[in-house]
């Protein structure tokens, strides 16, 4: 048994705040939980806060990219917020471009971006 990352529902948005260093199974569980919750709640947006993450390696990076694609197909936009500068620099050198993953500096800006995207779609 591994810990699961909580997925919180706030209005039409799902909020995921990753607070500890994740092992691979927890990453996979999160991906599955998120897809299920998007469908179950009809959420229009997902915010994943990674400000507490000290590293993002290819495994977590792939989860973020896959999740962005899945949620889009399910009708929700995903914004990844709070990536540390050192993490961003490392990701680029690792060779992970995170194409298709929307990012914002912090939670507040992420929510703002989601609202703008929602308005654009309406």
């Amino acid at each position: 048994m591994t810990d699961r990352v909580p997925v919180l529902k706030i209005g039409e948005i799902l909020l995921v705040s990753i607070q500890f260093d994740l092992e691979d199974q927890t990453v996979l569980d999160l991906q599955e939980d998120l897809s299920n919750r998007i469908v179950a709640t009809g959420a229009k947006g997902v915010v994943i806060d990674i400000s507490a993450l000290e590293i993002v390696d290819s495994f977590v990076g792939r989860m973020l990219a896959t999740n962005a694609s899945i949620s889009r197909i399910l009708g929700a936009e995903t914004i990844v917020v709070g990536m540390r500068p050192a993490v961003a620099m490392t990701l680029v050198e690792l060779g992970l471009s995170l194409n298709g993953v929307r990012t914002a500096m912090n939670l507040e800006r992420g929510l703002k971006l989601l609202r703008r995207l929602a308005a654009g779609r309406a």
């Binding site: 000290e54 590293i55 993002v56 390696d57 500068p85 050192a86 620099m89 490392t90 050198e93 690792l94």
Partner: peptide
């Protein structure tokens, strides 16, 4: 810090 992050990754 950046070196730490690269190494740990």
């Amino acid at each position: 810090l950046v070196h730490q992050t690269k190494l740990v990754t």
